[in-house]
Computed example of a mutant assay.
Amino acid sequence: MSGLTLSAMHDARDAEDTRLLAAGEIGLLVESYYGVIIDRCRAKARGNEEAALEIAGAVAERLLSELKRGRAYRVPFRVVVHKVIDWKAAEHYRRRDVAIVELDEDHVDGSAADPFAKFESDYDLDLLFEGLSPRERQVMELRWREGLAIEQVAQRLEMTRNAVDQALHRALVRLREKVCA
């Protein structure tokens, strides 16, 4: 497909989006993107249909609520749709990870806990953290072993929050590649 054709498609889509917004047809506008939303959410959920539908619902809900409040965007609506999908997918998995940790901590009877569980957990993390840079490893250790908040990690390592976020992101990308390889 040539760039001109793609550009013409984007221009046509943007014109239709503008027309629907001007007419106050926000439901129709969001509905016109629902196929794209579902497909992208399925890709983000990696085959988990329930998660994909939950994320897609959250995306549609956010788009509709922002449009109903009269939110205007400086970029084409199609770009907004893709960004909201990214944000809602990330939020979904962050929430899920926190819920799993809380469930494990709330439902484990300390007297019946496996005495080797902490050792095995630490050993597994040591193996996972191999290959990370020293700074990434420090950040991951404080975040996942000690359970510090990002702000606390930044304070302890005398870093900015942004630097901690970047180190966490790089470390998680490396870990994802390692685990999925």
Rank of each mutant, 00 (worst) to 15 (best):
R62I: 02
D97C: 07
I85N: 00
L103R: 10
G57R: 05
K88P: 02
S32Y: 09
P76D: 04
V101Q: 04
K88N: 00
F77T: 08
I37E: 01
C41K: 11
V79N: 08
R69D: 11
V101W: 02
A51H: 11
E66L: 13
R71M: 13
R46E: 15
V101G: 03
L64G: 10
A99P: 02
A45H: 03
V81W: 09
V75Y: 07
V84T: 15
A60L: 02
L67G: 02
A58S: 13
V98I: 11
N48L: 07
V80K: 06
A89D: 02
V84K: 03
E91W: 03
C41D: 13
R95K: 13
R46C: 10
Y93L: 04
A72P: 00
L63V: 00
I55T: 07
Y93Q: 05
D86K: 13
R71Y: 11
N48S: 08
A52S: 11
Y33P: 15
R42T: 05
L53N: 08
E54S: 13
A43G: 13
Y33K: 14
A72V: 14
I37D: 01
A58V: 00
Y93N: 05
K44P: 02
N48H: 09
I85D: 00
S65T: 14
A90T: 12
D104P: 00
K83G: 11
I55E: 01
R62W: 04
I37S: 01
D104H: 03
R42P: 02
V79F: 05
Y33D: 14
V80P: 01
V59K: 02
A90P: 03
V98S: 06
V75C: 08
R95C: 05
